[in-house]
Nucleic acid binder design. Structure first.
Length: 637
RNA sequence: GCCGACGUAGCUCAACUGGUAGAGCAGCGGUUUUGUAAACCGCCGGUCCUGGGUUCGAAUCCCAGCGUCGGCUCCA
């Protein structure tokens, strides 16, 4: 399954965003070795195909499917120029320059043509050409992108002082392609497949190069696996947070504010509940909450470096000849609170939390529901501490993150990103910061992965990833140990016990990341059926007939008084309909009141989806106690 | 921003090749008082995204803008 990109506003607390737009050429693989043709088992036996499904072979099958697709496209659209066609997670794609835009009908025709090629069971045959020969060959076939690839390979070899290596080709039936391989033995070994979509894609991912047409497809060893994958795509659509947001009346988007959500009462209630839970957790951990201005003079951004490096993402306004910007990050302003008075070593650590509303001018084409927005709120905090306190602070953050993950049943994974090539500050400081992060991770007992060079340019960081119910990976929290940017650019100091001025260390961190995005992830993970503790409506009181309405309202009032979010459905709908509506709204608890219950001062508790036989009828007082306890426990169901 | 698709009632969707917009749900009014996922009847509801153009005539065709969706990261 294709995961969403993990780098977005949730992960970039600070200047990191500046560095994301990296267009460095990725190093291409060395020249082709003897690339094996996999000997896949004969087609037709699902078990054998499954057994043979070693990762490399599945990739070979996917890559082979890309070739077959290219064959079909070249056949149906003469003059097609070929880009690249790799295997990717769950499938493959191929990029083409075509005489006209593709339509969904074309996909069906291409698919059909592919099936014919698979049925023909053409063997894949490897060939080899000297570099110059290869270039002439593809030049002669009017394939400029292939020629460019060969030129790059030759240039790279020349730069390394080597002669260009021979290049390999793969032919199946009528189709020949420049290709490193490997492939399956023949087209007949390609499993069940499906073409999925057409999309534009810049040649080599660079916006200054031509826009090609990319066709995505998926292929699997067995029909069951294909079906399971297609089901997962369907399920993802059903769980789409944009659809759920409308269905559950949580938020909406309107064209007057692209990239910014309008929060409806229930959505705002969910938001508030998440925020309040975090506040409570932070209060126990010694945080203080602050709030800084949203509209700030350019002087601040010049000092922080954003003006140079991040200006294109900042919304600017002018007033009385002065230029201001909506803040895209909280960190620079946080330092003004730190510096508002002299700080003593006794003040540290100083943990300043801020639920700041941020604006970033993202490209219009990248906006996507709550997951990619122009306006959002981070559960941000900046921790100012002495260097010797750093490790303990990181440990506390890991613990905080664990606690928050438990509220939702998420199992976090950790990734430590260390000093990148381009980094600010003294390497010795970096080593200390990295050692603190590493020690804290080790002490936490959690497993983690080190990714060398993946830190922010001013700080090593720990990114925290979670998998949702559909096995998609999301980055939520990030923790960055900044010894350089805030402390030095903003000249932060404290006075130590000997009266000397010292430089503090800062930590940038967010646990939910952006509230918008986190809510989007929650909705998709739970398919809208949120845990009791954070559900916007925790219970609906369902009265059966008019004569039960008074009791229903009394019960509703009692539960609301106990701090629960409860609605009373005293409409004249039949109870079946009331239950249906509550189920559709994913309300966790329905409390049924009829003659029996009113008589006994009880209510029948129907949990979301629970059949009547399993329902319990209990007294109001007991019910209120149990529900309040359940809400306070913040369990993930 | 770029490529492509899409934009009809609050929501989900119809309207053959251009002939003047329709259904279900929701909402509103009534009837109904019901025991675990839809009671019945009626009513209201549309600048067919916006602005130009072609045409006797445009939701439908053309151009521009806005918005949404899928991508633009997987490297022969």
């Amino acid at each position: 399954m294709t995961s969403r990109p993990v780098a977005d506003e949730g992960s970039s607390l600070s200047m990191e965003m500046v560095m994301i737009d990296r267009n460095e050429e990725r190093l291409e693989q060395a020249p082709p070795d003897e690339a094996p043709v996999f000997e896949a088992p004969a087609r037709g036996s699902a078990d054998e195909l499954l057994d043979a499904g070693a990762h490399g072979e599945l990739d070979a099958m996917r890559h082979s499917a890309a070739h077959v697709m290219a064959e079909a496209v070249v056949d149906l659209l003469p003059g097609a120029k070929l880009g690249i066609g790799p295997a990717i997670a769950d499938g493959f794609y191929y990029d083409f320059e075509l005489p006209r835009p593709l339509t969904p009908d074309d996909l069906a025709a291409i698919e059909e043509r592919m099936r014919a090629s698979v049925a023909a069971d053409h063997p894949f045959v490897r060939g080899e050409l000297a570099a110059a020969e290869g270039r002439a060959f593809f030049e002669g076939r009017d394939q400029p992108y292939k020629v460019e690839i060969l030129d790059d390979l030759a240039a790279r070899a020349a730069a390394a002082g080597e002669a260009p290596a021979p290049v390999s080709t793969y032919t199946h039936g009528p189709f020949i392609d420049l290709c490193r391989g490997p492939h399956v033995a023949s087209t007949g070994r390609i499993g069940p497949f499906r073409l999925l979509s057409v999309a534009g894609a810049y040649w080599r991912g660079r916006s200054d190069r031509p826009m090609l047409q990319r066709i995505y497809g998926t292929v699997w060893p067995t029909q069951q696996e294909l079906d399971a994958y297609l089901w997962r795509l369907e399920e993802a659509k059903r769980r789409d947070h944009r659809r759920l947001g409308r269905q559950l009346d949580l938020f909406s988007f309107h064209d007057v504010a692209p990239g910014a959500a309008f929060w409806h009462p229930k959505g705002q209630t969910l938001w508030r509940t998440l925020e309040d839970a975090m506040r409570e957790e932070q209060r126990r951990r010694g945080y203080l909450e602050v709030s800084t201005p949203m509209l700030v003079h350019r002087r601040l951004w010049e000092r922080s470096g954003h003006w140079d490096l991040y200006q294109e993402h900042m919304f600017q306004l002018e007033s009385e000849g002065q230029v201001y910007s909506l803040k895209p990050m909280n960190c620079p302003e946080s330092t003004y609170i730190y510096r508002a008075r002299k700080r003593s070593y006794r003040d540290l650590p100083l943990r300043l939390a801020e639920y700041g509303r941020l604006h970033r001018n993202e490209l219009s084409g990248t906006l996507s529901g709550l997951l990619r927005v122009r306006q959002f709120v981070q559960d941000d905090a900046h921790i100012y501490c002495r260097p010797d306190q750093l490790q303990a602070e990181i440990a506390d953050l890991l613990d905080l993150n664990q606690a928050v993950c438990r509220w939702f049943g998420f199992v976090p994974r950790y990734r430590l990103g260390t000093r990148p090539d381009k980094a600010l500050g003294d390497p010795a400081l970096w080593e200390r910061a990295e050692a603190s992060l590493l020690a804290a991770l080790e002490a936490s007992g959690q497993s983690f992965r080190v990714e060398p060079g993946e830190g922010a340019f001013y700080a090593p960081k720990i990114d925290i990833l979670i998998d949702d119910a559909l096995d998609r990976e999301w980055q939520t929290a990030t923790i960055q140990a900044d010894l350089v940017m805030l402390p030095e650019r903003f000249d932060l100091t404290y006075t130590d016990e000997h009266g000397a001025e010292q430089r503090p260390v800062t930590v940038h961190r967010a646990i939910y990341g952006s509230l918008e995005r986190f809510i989007g992830v929650l909705l998709e993970h739970f398919a809208g059926a949120l845990p009791f503790w954070c559900a916007p409506v925790q219970a609906v009181v369902v009265s059966i007939a008019t004569r039960h309405e008074t009791a229903a309202r009394e019960l509703g009032t009692l539960l609301v008084d106990r701090g629960l979010r409860v609605e009373v459905d005293d409409s004249d709908l039949r109870m079946q309909n009331k239950i249906r509506l509550a189920e559709e709204q994913k309300v966790p608890v329905m409390l049924v009141l009829g003659d029996r219950e009113v008589e006994g001062g009880t209510a029948t508790v129907r949990r979301r989806g629970q059949p009547p036989g399993e329902q319990e009828t209990i007294g109001w007082e007991e019910l209120a106690k149990r529900l309040a306890a359940e809400a306070a426990a913040r369990r993930p169901s």
